[in-house]
Design a protein around this nucleic acid. Structure first.
Length: 993
RNA sequence: GCGAAAGUGGCGGAAUUGGUAUACGCACUGGACUUAGAAUCCAGCGGAGUAAUCCAUGGGGGUUCAAGUCCCCCCUUUCGCACCA
């Protein structure tokens, strides 16, 4: 009997944390030197936190997962970059400042300090030398540099647009940041405001962002689908409809006025003001957008608009079923098309509603009094203004085919508009090839011409010309099928018809095949103080001018007053606003909006790759601007001749990136993860690095919930990690957060469950301590060699130990794949628990005593207690070797989850080396083989008995053995009754009778 | 409405390729130790039944010697999108 120390997690954890920090154990070089050169790199990254005050359980889980992966990879011999930082710009700081009358900076940096201490207390293996604080000007100056370079390339531009406004946050929001019409941050209802805003041209990368999703094999399908839907690519036909009754030239003139206006703006922007007031601000805007098809055709399209209306459709095959055109209330031609006073009044109302909110409760519309001509059948179609047509998608105008579109159908029903069926759901391809041949050279698209190829018997014997009354058609058919009522196109299947009709439209110069995206440019202007200032000034003479790159950073002024009312404090700070123009030196005013904080998180992963704050790069800006603005070109020319600086060494970025494993919440599936992908492509095109995608593998972890609900103060179900750490230690908290559920699922917090994890750690500590003296001097580093030298090394070793080792080998293998592929740490941990239980059983058998696992809460007075030491282990020396190998292996497997206690135990057992450098455990073959195994015996697929048989027995032997079994005899008395049997080796036999 | 994922004991969850469902942990029950409690240890623990057995992976069909796993239909929950033409 000896006195034993208790598990004092507090001093153990402190001891190892100090060792790790003082030894710089997790610090890596920008580019590997010496032995590390031979290692494979691994960049492990968790989404960095917003310093909101104290860490919460969501953080603990996120960072425990990341730390487990990072530590595992080091064990496996990778050179691991595992950095951390703080995403420290953002609204809460400013709101706190307003509330407490302090400076947001103070609040933020105090929080960072607190959280840093908490992270260190959790024992997270970060390279602290690489810490980023995004609100430091040393960080955001680079962001300003990127902005200026994007501006010069036309990737950052300002335009007047309808944007999402959150009254409670007092700022605008990007489309991605609006959830169900509410603010993603505060849940406030969003309203629509018309404002002059800065945008980043993410749409330029829409195609690449979409296409590259296919290569992201390490991403969950869910996230890829969400991004795909968000980008929302659709291919279709842009088609011009002539307006039927042009009465006078004034309409033409007003349309031409519009051309000028649209030309002064960038693509996709439309004037929606029905009163047609001139907007001076528009004229200030410099057009920086490269000429795209739509830009080139803007003028042409607007000219045509004078007498034509451009629509977009993905279903050109339904053109003969169009019975009306519908345009958005915000469409520029609304005023020109309105013919009656009554319609004008109704339209005003529709416009008013559309301007306030995007939400539509019921479909509403107004007939303009104007008609358009369907170019394919010359049919006269009424033009409606309809609230369900969105101005910011496609052309803001559609052709409506009520027979084949639910929205059009609903609207047509409401306003009693004709419904013409043109598609039948039928697998009917027999005549289609003939029909295609007949189209060429046939320019007669008269509605009354009926294609002879059309075989009406094959279409349920119904009439070929099929004007369906709205009373007959109950629901529209919106699928693809075979064309009817479509002149020469009859009999084609949709896919062919789409092609044929689009081709025809292009031939007649009345349309063009186009691709549309749902994705809009990223609005980054925020009317708030605590963010990165946009490095732009407005000069009376030169207009919109970026700062000189050498003048960066443009620091956020600190002498501001927070009232919480009206506009941003920056917008009232004359000392900030009034400045000189960097080009002419004349009077100028600064931009007072700051950048969306998602800009900071779009490139932080790249900054981590270089330790130093500023690295001179040999990169030369080869900006290939296609802007036609002389002023901009001048800037570009100067930029291309001087060497510019970069926040990171290109070589280091190329070495470490992409991030090999990225871990974070699924709530960023479209916002952060899309922006970051966009940014890496921009940085690539600006010459800063050579990669296409930032994150190779993505793990999206679930939320931490309690009583089925997300932890929140209002629900009173918040668990403070600090309390738990103080009570049980970090290892316990980490262990439970990894054990209770696989990472991608929500984790149900359970206070009693935490105690279970605590108990397990105690169990490890106790048994290791019990064997301390016994195993301390056993040197197993050369165990493999010992076995090679002496093939009979384990000959006399205890069979129970060999059995445990055999199971250990299975766990080593299984754990490895779990840690690398599925990240189901819970199963790894449970395997280790089983193994520890086995060791306890072994110990009990050997000594006929139990180890007393007394758990003492630190709140109690510390008691000493006694444990029984192993009595009978002097049997064979090799037992010690094997037992030590088993202990060490379990400790290594568990090390990624509970690094402190495993390091401590590893040391207790007398290992001279650091546990991490020991590497992933080796499989030791002691020569032990399982000789017998249990076989399930089924009769007709139902389990009826269990037998024990020699391993690898043949089917016939098992069958014979089964038939001797008492329970089986009840079902079958001899072999002649066996119809057949199916045998799965060492597992099961199914006897069919 | 559309799309995706999920549904297994009292609870969190195992079962990765169709092959002994419910590993591991929590809770619970009984016992040991203790003046007592806590802690710890031992035993039990899907449901019904004295038992033999029967029934159980949201419900209903199907494929198969064999289905939690594959196919079809339905229900519920969660998430995403929601007039994107």
């Amino acid at each position: 009997m000896e006195q034993e120390k208790i598990y004092d997690f507090s001093s153990i954890e402190k001891k190892w944390q100090n060792k790790w920090l003082n030894g710089n154990d997790y610090s890596v070089d920008d580019l590997p030197i010496d032995t590390n050169k031979n290692k494979e790199k691994f960049y492990c990254l968790e989404m960095f936190p917003y310093p909101s005050g104290r860490i919460h359980m969501g953080h603990v889980r996120n960072y425990s997962i990341g730390d487990a992966i990072a530590r595992f990879k080091r064990l496996k011999g990778y050179y691991v970059l595992h950095p951390i930082g703080f995403d420290s710009f953002g609204l809460p700081a400013e709101n706190a400042a307003i509330k407490n009358k302090t400076n947001p900076k103070e609040w933020t940096y105090k929080n960072i300090e607190t959280m840093e201490v908490q992270f260190k207390k959790l024992g997270l293996s970060y390279d602290w030398d690489r810490k980023i604080i995004t609100s430091d000007s040393s960080y955001y100056k680079w962001e300003q540099l990127f902005f200026i370079q994007m501006f010069k390339k036309g990737l950052a531009y300002k335009k007047l647009s309808r944007v999402n406004w959150c009254e409670s946050c007092h700022t605008t929001l990007a489309n991605e940041q609006v959830e169900n019409g509410k603010c993603w941050r505060c849940d406030n209802e969003i309203t629509i405001k018309s404002m002059d805003q800065w945008f980043l041209k993410i749409t330029d990368y829409a195609e690449e962002l979409l296409a590259e999703l296919d290569n992201l094999n390490g991403w969950p399908d869910k996230v890829k689908t969400m991004q795909k839907n968000w980008i929302g690519k659709s291919e279709g036909l842009s088609l011009f409809f002539k307006i039927a009754d042009k009465e006078n030239a004034s309409d033409l003139q007003s349309a031409i006025n519009k051309i000028e206006k649209i030309n002064g703006q960038v693509s996709n922007s439309h004037n929606y003001n029905i009163n047609d007031d001139d907007n001076d601000e528009n004229n200030k805007i410099i057009n920086l957008s490269p000429e795209s098809w739509s830009d080139k055709n803007q003028k042409k399209s607007a000219e045509k608009n004078a007498m034509e209306l451009e629509i977009f459709t993905t279903r050109p095959d339904t053109i003969f079923g169009a019975t009306y055109l519908a345009i958005s209330p915000l469409h520029p031609l609304v005023k020109d098309l309105l013919k009656t006073e009554n319609a004008k009044i109704k339209t005003e109302e529709l416009i008013r509603k559309s301007l306030i909110s995007k939400e539509i409760t019921e479909k509403e519309g107004v007939f303009t009094g104007s008609y358009a001509i369907n170019p394919f059948n010359k049919k006269k179609l009424p033009i409606y203004i309809a609230n369900f047509v969105l101005m910011d998608y496609g052309t803001g105008a559609i052709m409506s085919v009520p027979a084949h579109d639910e929205r059009d159908f609903e609207f047509a029903k409401k306003y009693n508009i004709e419904i013409i069926e043109v598609i039948r759901n039928q697998d009917y391809t027999a005549v289609s090839s003939n029909a295609v041949n007949n189209i060429s050279g046939n320019n007669d698209y008269n509605h009354n011409v009926i294609n002879n190829n059309y075989n009406n018997k094959s279409l349920n014997g119904e009439s070929s010309v099929n004007l369906v009354n709205d009373s007959e058609l109950i629901s529209p058919f919106n699928g693809e099928g075979i064309l009817i009522n479509s002149s020469v196109f009859n009999g084609l299947i949709s896919k062919e018809a789409k092609n044929a009709i689009s081709l025809e439209a292009e031939k007649m110069s009345i349309g063009k095949r186009v691709t549309n995206y749902r994705l809009k440019d990223w609005g980054i202007s925020r009317q708030r103080y605590w963010g990165c200032p946009i490095p732009i000034v407005y000069c009376e003479k030169c207009g919109t001018v970026p700062l000189n790159e050498n003048d960066l950073p443009l620091e956020l002024p600190e002498n501001v007053v927070f009232t919480g009312e009206g506009e941003s404090p920056l917008a009232r700070l004359d000392s900030f606003i009034d400045t000189c123009c960097p080009v002419c030196g004349g009077k100028a005013k600064r931009e007072t909006d700051t950048m969306d904080t998602f800009v900071e998180s779009s490139w932080y992963y790249a900054k981590y790759t270089s330790k130093s704050d500023l690295v001179k790069s040999d990169y030369i800006n080869k900006s290939n601007s296609n802007s036609n603005n002389n002023f901009i070109n001048n800037i570009n020319n100067s930029a291309s001749t001087h060497t510019i600086q970069s926040p990171f060494d290109k070589k280091a970025a190329n070495y470490w990136l992409p991030v090999d494993q990225y871990i974070g919440g699924v709530e960023h599936a479209v916002m952060h993860l899309l922006y970051a992908r966009f940014f890496v492509k921009v940085l690539r095109d600006l010459g800063y690095l050579n990669i296409n995608e930032p994150f190779k593998n993505l793990l999206t972890q679930g939320m931490v919930v309690k009583n089925g609900a997300k932890m929140s103060k209002s629900k009173g179900n918040v668990v403070d990690p600090d309390d738990l750490i103080n009570k049980y230690g970090s290892d316990t908290v980490r262990l439970f957060s990894l054990f209770a559920a696989p990472p991608e699922k929500d984790l149900e917090w359970n206070d009693k469950g935490v105690e279970g994890s605590y108990r397990f750690i105690n169990k490890i500590y106790k048994i290791v301590s019990a064997y301390e003296k016994y195993l301390k001097n056993i040197e197993i580093n050369n165990l493999k060699n010992l076995i090679i030298l002496n093939k009979n090394f384990f000959e006399k070793t205890d069979i129970e130990l060999k059995k445990i080792n055999y199971e250990l080998n299975g766990i080593i293998k299984k754990s490895e794949t779990e840690m690398e592929e599925r990240f189901h740490f819970n199963t790894v941990i449970s395997s280790c628990m089983e193994l520890v239980n086995k060791i306890y059983e072994y110990h009990k058998k050997q000594n006929n005593v139990n180890i007393n696992i007394e758990i003492i809460n630190t709140t109690d007075t510390i008691k000493t207690f006694e444990i029984e030491r192993p009595q009978t282990y002097e049997k064979y020396e090799s037992d010690k070797y094997l037992l030590k190998h088993i202990f060490n292996s379990i400790l290594i497997i568990l090390y990624p989850f509970i690094p402190h206690i495993c390091s401590e135990c590893f040391e207790i057992l007398g290992s001279s080396i650091n546990i991490e450098s020991a590497g992933w455990p080796e499989i030791i073959d002691t020569g032990y083989k399982i000789e017998t195994c249990g076989i399930a015996v089924q009769i007709n697929g139902k389990l009826r008995s269990q037998i024990t048989a020699n391993i690898d027995s043949e089917q016939q032997d098992i069958l014979n053995l089964s038939l001797e079994d008492e329970k089986i005899k009840k079902y079958i008395d001899n072999i002649s009754g066996v119809k057949k049997s199916i045998y799965i080796k060492n597992k099961l036999i199914n006897i069919v009778i």
